[in-house]
């Protein structure tokens, strides 16, 4: 590190060269953000808003469309509450819903590893069919590739989706106003714990089930209610904390969250305590947050509670200030939440 000679003397550990992709780049946290900011956005974005939200929104011949894509590399492929197939359909459906769009058509691309079981492929495809039907979308086109044994981890899935915007006003972090309430659609942490427990054979007798589900219906109910919906964001990898940080930073706002208001189910709580992980950062696949004007908060909550009684108001957007931060109110006061580097690993320490 020639830029600061103080370091060369003090710190004997080699600084990571940073010229190869690491697992942490896929974690949805800081390194993922770096990849987007340093490689993808300079190449592809034509305006500051490009590549900032879950989906892209644009107009073609008078029709306002939303378009999104997502790839799925989950291991294990099958886990309690879902599998890579249902994940792939619901993930893309939900990204469209978060733009305020009615999801309509999906494509699916499969990369299969030589030797992958055809029975498993049937299971995945059947799961995708079921998920598409539940979400009210159609899988209309697709592609399949096969790679040599040892190069593919079994199966990778990509889905892309297109939908029609259902609201005349934009729904995005840029619409967030000071005073907006933040309403969470249900308890957090189920998916990440379910997958980790299955993958690492943690030996939990109690099966924690993923919350993988389409969010089309609750979002439609919110849109139909008529109040001004400012922003929607589904919680995926990196958990509630990451979604909040991304909104705060995109908008340039301070978000205040009351930790005691965030619902966590008992088994997820127990699992997080045993593993030493923070539920705020654990992945979800069937939960979202809505940022709405303060006077619409109770109405929004009542609507979401019809779909999941665990829905709760967890905080508010406060002042507009750059850089945006998320302040968590805990026992001893307030602390800022930061993006994780990679996925949380269970600890004994």
């Amino acid at each position: 590190m020639s830029e600061n000679s103080l370091f060369a003397l003090n710190c004997p550990l080699p600084v990571t060269a940073g010229d190869t992709i690491e697992l942490a780049h896929g974690g949805g946290g800081l390194l993922t953000r770096r990849l987007i900011d340093e490689i993808f956005r300079p190449a592809f974005a034509e305006s500051p808003d490009d590549l900032t939200h879950d989906g892209a929104v644009f107009e073609i011949a008078g029709a306002r469309l939303a378009f999104t894509t997502d790839s799925y590399v989950v291991r294990p492929l099958f886990f309690p509450g879902g599998d890579i197939g249902s994940l792939a359909v619901n993930g893309t459906v939900n990204d469209l819903a978060m733009c305020g769009a009615e999801p309509l058509y999906l494509s699916v691309g499969l990369v299969l590893e030589e030797g992958f079981s055809i029975d498993d492929l049937r299971r995945v495809v059947e799961a995708m069919r079921g998920a598409a039907r539940s979400a009210g979308v159609r899988l209309v086109t697709g592609d399949t590739k096969v790679v040599e044994r040892g190069r593919g981890d079994g199966l990778y899935v990509n889905t892309s989706g297109v939908g029609l915007l259902a609201t005349p006003w934009p729904i995005s972090p840029r619409q967030v106003q000071p005073g907006d309430a933040i309403v969470l659609s249900g308890d957090i942490g189920r998916h990440g714990i379910a997958v980790m427990a299955a993958r690492e054979a943690l030996g939990f007798e109690t099966v924690v089930t993923s919350d993988c589900a389409p969010l089309v219906s609750p979002v439609r109910a919110l849109i139909d209610s008529g109040f001004e919906l400012h922003c929607l964001r589904d919680l995926t990898r990196g958990g509630l904390a990451t979604a909040l940080i991304e909104i705060a930073e995109t908008r340039g706002a301070t978000i205040r969250i009351d930790e005691s208001a965030v619902p966590v189910s008992d088994p997820v709580r127990g699992a997080c305590e045993i593993l030493g992980v923070d539920p705020l950062y654990v992945a979800n696949e069937g939960r979202f947050i809505a940022l709405v004007p303060a006077d619409a908060a109770e109405q929004c909550l009542a609507i979401l509670q019809r779909f999941n009684e665990g829905a709760a108001i967890i905080g508010r957007a406060d002042v507009l200030a750059s850089p945006g931060i998320v302040c968590l109110d805990t026992i001893g006061g307030t602390r800022a939440l930061d993006l994780l580097i990679g996925e949380q690993l269970p600890r004994i320490c």
Binding site: D318, V319, A321, P323, G324, R335
Partner: peptide, 12 residues
């Protein structure tokens, strides 16, 4: 878990 950045916190 550090303190929020001082300026933003003060404004908040």
């Amino acid at each position: 878990y550090r303190r929020p950045r001082a300026a933003s916190m003060a404004i908040a």
